[in-house]
Every structure is written in C-alpha cells, then in structure tokens.
C-alpha cells in the first residue's frame, strides 16, 4: 500500500495547498471593500514542504509503523503589500484576481496529473 500512497502523495499535498490558497484568495477578494483589512498571502513552496509531512513532529519508533503524511499546512501571513486607499485596506483586486485564475489553472493541472497517474497505474494493473 505504501507504494501506492507514495505515488499519489505529492499531488495530493499539492491539491491540498492549492485549495487552501484558493480559500485565502477568495477571502481577500471578499474583503476588497472592508476597511482596515490586510490582504493575506502564503508562500506556496514552504506550505507544500510542510504539507508533504516534514513538520508533523511524529517519529517512527518501530519498523512496522506507517508513515504519516497528513502534514500541517503553514498558516497564512499578512502580505507586505502597501495600503493604497484611505480606508486602510491593502487588497489589490487586480492582483488577487490574477492569482485566483492562476491558482485555479494550476489546481486543474494537478488534477490532470493525478488522472494521468491513475491511468498509468491502471494500464499496469490491467496489462
């Protein structure tokens, strides 16, 4: 089972981080008119590294232990974008919409890659 798990682990983590990033961008867009709201962003590379399980804090003490890959996802931080308006809101709507589309497409790319992996595995199994 571990081999199968490992085959999908990377894309699964990538999808998880992508969907969290999507949630973050949706929050920024939803709050584009909220006074004093500060836009949030996440560092995708380090979030993916965390999600891949380097930060679980669990160690294997026996050979038969299963590896835990439900890594935590690093928490979002306030992005360093300057506040533009007088209402203290730092959301740049154009940038957020761009990021939203970019993230949605990359999510779809990950889904397509998982599909490709499934097809490859099936062709190996079915011959």
């Amino acid at each position: 089972m571990t081999r199968l798990d490992d085959a999908f682990r990377f894309q699964e983590a990538a999808l998880r981080v992508r969907s969290q990033r999507q949630e973050l961008i949706a929050s920024n867009i939803a709050n584009a008119d909220t006074p004093n709201y500060k836009a949030k962003s996440m560092d995708f590379a380090s979030a993916l590294r965390d999600a891949l399980g380097s930060g679980t804090g669990l160690t294997k003490t026996a050979g038969g232990h299963l590896s835990v890959n439900s890594g935590r996802i690093s928490s979002p931080e306030n992005s360093a974008q300057p506040t533009t308006g007088r209402d203290g809101n730092s959301v740049n709507l154009d940038r957020e919409r761009g990021a939203f589309i970019d993230n949605a497409l990359l999510y779809e790319a990950s889904v397509n890659m998982v599909n490709g992996q499934v097809k490859s595995l099936l062709s190996v199994i079915q011959g």
Partner: peptide, 21 residues
C-alpha cells in the same frame, strides 16, 4: 466578482470529483 469566485470553486470541485474516471 464573488459570483465568479463561486463558479470557479464549483468547477474546481467538479474536476476533483472526476479524478480517476
């Protein structure tokens, strides 16, 4: 804009449901 966001999230979820088909 928020309606667009919802539609995008919906199409992403639909894609996710089609994994492995």
């Amino acid at each position: 804009t928020n309606v667009d966001i919802m539609n995008a999230a919906k199409s992403m979820l639909t894609k996710t449901l089609s994994i492995g088909q």
